[in-house]
Each structure stands twice: as structure tokens, then as C-alpha cells.
Computed example of a mutant assay.
Amino acid sequence: MAITARHTTTLALAHALSAAERGLPVIPLSPTKLPALRSPHRDEPRRAHCRGECGLPGHGVYDATTDPAGVRALFAAAPWATGYGIACGRPPHQLIGIDLDVTPTGGGGPASGAGPGPVQASPPDSLAALQQLALQHLFTLPETVIVLTPSGGRHIWLTGPAHVVVPNSAGRLAPGIDVRGAGGYLVGPGSVTARGAYRLAPGTERLAPAPCPRALLRLLTPPPARPHPHQDRPARGDGLVQFVRAAHAGQRNTRLFWAACRAYEHGFGEALVEALVDAAVRTGLTEQEARATIASAARLTSRP
């Protein structure tokens, strides 16, 4: 049993090193698909927002690296790892993952084609939704890397422009379609989880991630903030948004929380939410983190 576990970890490391050689930042994953290394701040009384600034491993996707020595060190610290994650939204590829929750309904299993088109089985909801989006917005997915998941789903790999931040989302694009962007990661092919192994779809083994179609990219990025009807809001609101955009690592949440508190205190917090979320995502926060921080500011300022 121990020999089998060591063999699985050795294979995971080999796959991770291969991905790192292609410029894909990686981290070790446990059989549950979660980062294998626990946070060094887990016993601290207040939740830390450190993203690796402390110099210790255990910061999830923020540990991801393409340095072979760094990859080996991460796996040496996590000998129980059975897979690896690939950080999205990072140079040089700016990887974007389209995660289709696919459950075949019969026939020969999930299709392995690169774009919306004929499939071997009846199309599940998420695949049908992607096909509908492609028809509605006039785009075609190029031939690209596709990873098949143990549950019958698939991950479609695309690349984005360096200046565009694609946030993580679950079901926002369409039911059953999750998006992995900045601050997220994809389970790499060759990983073994509690549910089985991830593998490259036949015919995509030699492909590189293809550029995301512009029409799809527009769907993946947050919409611009809507202007508030009050005339006195933009000047103050724009200053708060710029304050958040200027945040550096280690101060993103603090700046966002402060700006959101000021906005709510002056009566235009709700009108500024989307602009603050957009600004925070551009600094590297995930959409979920940004909205949670803003919600905390709203609760605090609403107390009597």
C-alpha cells in the first residue's frame, strides 16, 4: 500500500515537473483535489490574508511555481500528494479553464472534441449550454487542450490576454459551467484523486492551450460598473475605486474593506459594489473574496 502511494506521488511529481517545463505554475494536491499543504497561519487567532509574503509554503494557488527546484520542494513537503494543480491567470499562458460538469447519458461516453459540435452521447445540460452560448454570441472554440475528469466532466483550456483579468465563477456563465481564472487552479492531467484519474482527451495530447475567442472572453470578464444617478457620487466613488486599484500584495483586502466602509458611510455603498469588485479583481483578489469583504463592510457600517 505504501509502495503504491509513493508511486502515485512520484508520478504526480513527474507530471507536475513536465507541466512546469511548459510554463504552467503548479502546486501539489491531495486526493480531495485541495492543496496538499496546510496554511502556516491556520492556528492564528485572526484569519490571515497572507498570500505567501511570509515566505512559507501552504498558501494554496499562491505557492504555484514553474521552478523545478521549487516544485520538488513543495512535493517533498507533501509526500501524501497524489496530483497537482495548475494556477490560472498567471504568465506566460494566462490560463483560463472552462469546467463543464458533464454526466454522459448513454452511448460511448463524453465527447472529446475541442468545441461545441456533434457529440457521441446526448448532450448534458452544461455542454448544451455552451453550445447555445456559442451560437448566440457567434464564437467557435478552437482546437485546444481538454482534460477529462473522473466524474465524466471536462476542462477546456484557453489562454487570455495579459491585461485581462478573468475572475473565478460558478454557474455565472451558464448552469453547470464553472470558470477558473485569476486565483483559481485546474487539476492537471495525470493527477489521481479519490474519484479517479484526470487524463487528456484523445486527440488533444499534443495541443497547446488556444487563445480564448473574443466573444467568449467578453462573457467571462466582469461588466463595467454602472454609473450612479446621483451627481455627487462619481467624484468620491471614483477616488475610492482608484484607491483599491492601487493596492499591492498584502494590502488588497485592507484597502477594499476601508473603501467599502467609506462608501457605505456616505450612502452610495450599494451603487459602488460592482466598481469595487472590478477594481479588487484587477489587483488579484477573486470575485468571491471581494464580495465577501464588501459584505463585511456593509454589515459593519449598518450597525447602530
Rank of each mutant, 00 (worst) to 15 (best):
R180G: 06
E205A: 15
L256T: 04
D99K: 03
P142V: 00
T82D: 02
P79Q: 08
S112F: 14
A174Q: 09
A170H: 14
Q131E: 11
S191C: 02
R233D: 12
I98S: 02
G117K: 08
G23S: 11
P28V: 03
L100F: 10
P57I: 00
Q136Y: 02
A111Q: 06
R199I: 11
Q120N: 12
P222E: 12
P79F: 10
C212T: 14
H155D: 03
C88V: 00
P35G: 08
Y84M: 02
A81D: 11
T144N: 00
L17D: 07
A271L: 03
Q131M: 09
I96V: 15
P189S: 14
P142N: 00
A5I: 04
L272T: 05
R282H: 11
T140N: 07
G269R: 04
Q120M: 12
G115V: 07
L148A: 14
L130C: 02
L56K: 12
A271G: 14
P45R: 02
G89D: 06
I3M: 04
G250A: 06
R180L: 08
L300Y: 12
L148S: 13
Y185C: 10
T283N: 01
A77I: 02
R218N: 07
Y185L: 10
T293W: 01
V61A: 12
T140V: 13
S122K: 12
G97D: 07
A279E: 08
L216H: 01
I177G: 07
R214D: 15
R233L: 13
G97F: 02
Y198R: 07
C212P: 09
V145H: 03
L173F: 11
G89V: 08
S169V: 10
P223M: 04
T286I: 11
M1G: 13
L17T: 06
T204L: 01
A81H: 09
S122C: 09
V187E: 00
S112L: 13
S169T: 15
V241E: 07
H230R: 15
T4Y: 08
D43C: 10
L138T: 13
L56H: 04
L135A: 13
T286P: 08
A81F: 09
I98R: 02
G284W: 00
T159L: 03
G97R: 03
D63W: 05
E274Q: 14
R245Q: 14
G267Y: 09
R22V: 03
A2Q: 05
T254W: 01
S122Y: 12
L200H: 05
I27L: 15
P209A: 12
R46H: 07
A36D: 06
A76I: 01
V147H: 02
L216T: 02
I98F: 04
R252L: 03
A170W: 09
G184W: 03
T9V: 03
G70H: 08
A5G: 04
Y84F: 15
L256G: 05
G23M: 10
Q132E: 15
C54R: 01
V61G: 08
I27Q: 06
L219Y: 05
P150F: 01
V166D: 10
G89T: 10
G70M: 10
G115H: 12
Y84P: 01
S122L: 14
W157E: 07
H49T: 09
V179M: 12
L127H: 08
A111R: 11
